[in-house]
Nucleic acid binder design. Structure first.
Length: 207
DNA sequence: GAGGAGATCGTCT
DNA sequence: GACGATCTCCTCT
């Protein structure tokens, strides 16, 4: 089991582009005690708030996106296409409602639990099968399924506090060779290069 | 391996 | 009443 320390709130009180790059290589931790599920963050996207037409915050504050307008470092979870949840963390560039979307994780611990949540049959021999591991959390909706992240349960939670049950930690891993690319699945402001991932990483959702 | 369609519902117009 | 920051399955090549 890795030991990780939570990130400070000030980490998130920056421009979402800086936060996004800095988050690569950190670990997303679900749960408490010994039943932890841990994934390394390998792919994220930045959303800039009012200046970014693709951002949920662009049209102003509503009950849905209220978390984005609150303090940085909190979880913003929303339902996409009526089926899937997606996880963001709020940032605060000069009072604006920016955020970072988590797009893919590399499973580190609690792999069998993740598979169960994803309804993937996993024999002991499969735990190291890269084909199967890749299906666990490579995609924003998949990682929410794998960690059982939902809006009723996790929206607004404090991602700097382990006691919230969903937090981000630094285990000493240092990201190198970060690739910048276009964001996935949006139509507005699609030309902005705000997606970041670890070069050559197997668990990135799209290359 | 690539491409297309369907699933499904909260939120905003 | 329309529309998604998606995933999976199916078909075709």
């Amino acid at each position: 089991m890795v030991s990780a320390r939570p990130l400070a709130r000030s980490f998130f009180a920056r421009d979402p582009r800086q936060v996004a790059r800095s988050l690569l290589g950190k670990v997303l931790v679900r749960g408490a005690g010994t039943r932890l599920r841990v994934g390394r963050i390998v792919e994220v996207e930045a959303y800039l708030g009012a200046a970014d037409a693709a951002a949920h915050a662009a049209a102003g504050e509503t009950t849905r996106n209220a978390v984005l307008f609150g303090p940085p470092g909190h979880a913003y979870v929303y339902l996409s296409y009526g089926l899937h949840y997606c996880l963001n963390v709020s940032c605060m560039p000069s009072g604006d409602a920016g955020c970072v979307l988590f797009r893919a994780l590399e499973p580190v611990a609690g792999i069998k639990q993740m598979a169960r949540s994803r309804e993937i049959e996993l024999a002991a021999a499969d735990v190291r099968d890269p084909q199967i591991l890749r299906r666990l959390a490579s995609g924003p909706a998949r990682l929410c399924q794998a960690l059982e992240i939902t809006r009723p349960r996790d929206n607004g939670g404090d991602m700097t506090a382990p006691k919230s049950g969903l937090w981000i930690g630094d285990d000493g891993f240092r990201a190198e060779n970060i690739v910048t690319a276009l964001r996935v699945g949006i139509t507005k402001s699609a030309e902005l290069p705000l997606r970041y991932y670890l070069a050559g990483n197997e668990f990135v959702s799209r290359r």
